[in-house]
Simulated assay, not measured.
Amino acid sequence: MKHVYNVSGMTCNNCKASVEESLSNLEQVKEVSVNLKAKTATIKMTSHVEVKTLQDALSDKFKISEQEETNVFNSDTNESDVEKKSELKQLFPLFLIFGYLIIASILLNYKPWDVSGFMLDFMGLFYIVFSFFKLLDLKGFPESFRMYDPLAKVLPIYGWVYPFIELTLGLMFLMRFQIDIALIVTLIVLGITTVGVTKALFSKTTIQCACLGTALKLPMTKATFIENSVMIIMAILMLSNTLAS
């Protein structure tokens, strides 16, 4: 007997492993296969198990719900459909947010046009918005973040503090407070993360993006690489202008 269930709350390979292990511990369960991208769990059972029993076996972070009974062929088809989904479409939420930030920054600085003001406002709004998404799931974010950030791997508490670092940097840029310090911290913080992201890209590791917390499902490495690159370039330009003047 095989059933497929929807499982929400999974953000990384650790979550996948946790769900598989928890469900496998049930007496009636013979085998569990979790598809992280499709957010499904295919369970082979010796006898039917109630959804409530499955839910009780999982952490409160995960929510499981029943789908129609399926077979191996249906499961393979679902995985194939997910794989075919274009990365550009997956990254659409990120590009949409970037578009809003760019428009807002332009409107704040177009009369008269101020390039420096535009970049400062963009960076400030960027940090505020992205910290907001991370704070929506402060428990889930650190777990995803440490999958690729070198410092978060060594110091897990860094993942909990990181959203507040972003929030502080955002306020500093918007309030024009200690901009040089904010720019240097930006280069250090994003530089560390980018090292981890680059390693993940070369190793072709698939991890859900933590840049927008766990609220939106994005391909982690490429989405994070895009946002980090934009911010690092802006920080370098701003620091160069400061040193030149």
Rank of each mutant, 00 (worst) to 15 (best):
W113L: 13
V185R: 01
R176A: 09
N14L: 07
I207V: 14
L120Y: 13
R176D: 11
L135E: 02
F122W: 15
F95C: 06
N6R: 13
G9T: 01
S86C: 03
S86R: 10
V49F: 07
N14F: 12
E143R: 14
V189R: 00
F164A: 04
L216R: 02
N25G: 04
F202E: 00
L187C: 11
I184Q: 01
L120T: 04
L171K: 01
C12S: 11
L183E: 06
E79R: 10
L237N: 07
N25A: 14
E31I: 00
F173S: 08
I64W: 08
G170A: 04
A152Q: 08
V32R: 10
I226D: 09
K222L: 11
G124L: 10
T198Q: 00
V185M: 11
T214C: 09
M175F: 13
G124C: 11
D137V: 03
G99E: 08
D81G: 01
D180S: 11
F92S: 14
T42K: 09
R146V: 02
M172A: 15
F133S: 05
F118R: 07
L36W: 05
G99V: 05
T206Y: 12
K84A: 08
T206L: 05
P112I: 10
S144T: 15
F95S: 07
M231K: 02
I165M: 12
F173N: 07
F132C: 06
V7G: 10
G117T: 08
N13S: 13
N109P: 04
I236G: 01
K85M: 12
A210E: 04
S24C: 00
N6Y: 12
E83Q: 14
V195S: 03
M220N: 15
F141H: 12
I165W: 04
H3A: 10
F145D: 06
S116F: 02
L218P: 07
V195E: 00
I207H: 11
L151V: 15
A223Y: 02
L167D: 03
D121T: 14
K37Y: 01
F145H: 11
E66N: 07
G191C: 05
K52C: 00
P112E: 05
T168I: 13
M45L: 15
K39G: 03
K85L: 14
K85H: 12
T186E: 03
Q67N: 14
I236M: 10
V115T: 13
P112C: 08
P93Y: 09
G9E: 04
Q28T: 05
G213L: 08
L169K: 06
K153Y: 02
A244W: 15
G117R: 10
S80Y: 14
F164R: 00
F62I: 02
S240R: 12
F92K: 12
F118C: 09
T46F: 05
L88Y: 13
Y158W: 15
I128Y: 02
E66G: 06
L94V: 14
F95Y: 15
T214F: 02
F141N: 12
L120W: 06
A215S: 14
G159P: 12
E68Q: 14
E83N: 12
L26D: 03
V82G: 00
V34A: 07
Y100N: 05
D81I: 13
T194V: 03
L212F: 15
M172P: 01
I128L: 15
V230R: 05
S80M: 12
K111H: 09
D121L: 01
